[in-house]
Amino acid sequence: MIAKKPSVEEKEITCIVCPTGCSIHVKRLEDGTLSIEGNQCKRGYDYAETEFIEPKRILATTIRIEMAKVPLVPVRTDEPVPKEKLDEILDFLANIKVKAPVNCGDVLVEHVLGLDANIIATRTLGVDTCDKIACEI
């Protein structure tokens, strides 16, 4: 489902630091150092380097919630997590449920899958026990 971390030792990376969108070529040389070409600035260089070594992403999704006016609470990781772990985190989050009330910023899962990132709520949802159909029409 999610693109595997390439085993190849070189990669074409589109920079997202600014609108220019440079195409940066990164290659691991025999001595283990990286050759980075095509960037037009230092920020592009840094971006390409991280993206080549260990690409990370903020994951934002939802978790099922009970007793709230909506069935889902939006959440995200508070730190970027390795791209290759996203699938596993998503599977994990699909299978858990929380209960209202939840406050924006609450940690809902600490160190998800043992990573250095927590899952935090991004919306405040109070207890709302009204009939689910009557809500939010």
Binding site: T62, R64, P71, L72, D91, A94, N95
Partner: peptide, 11 residues
Amino acid sequence: GHTKDFRRHKD
């Protein structure tokens, strides 16, 4: 189906 179902069923 509901959001989350596809990954829950997969699991």
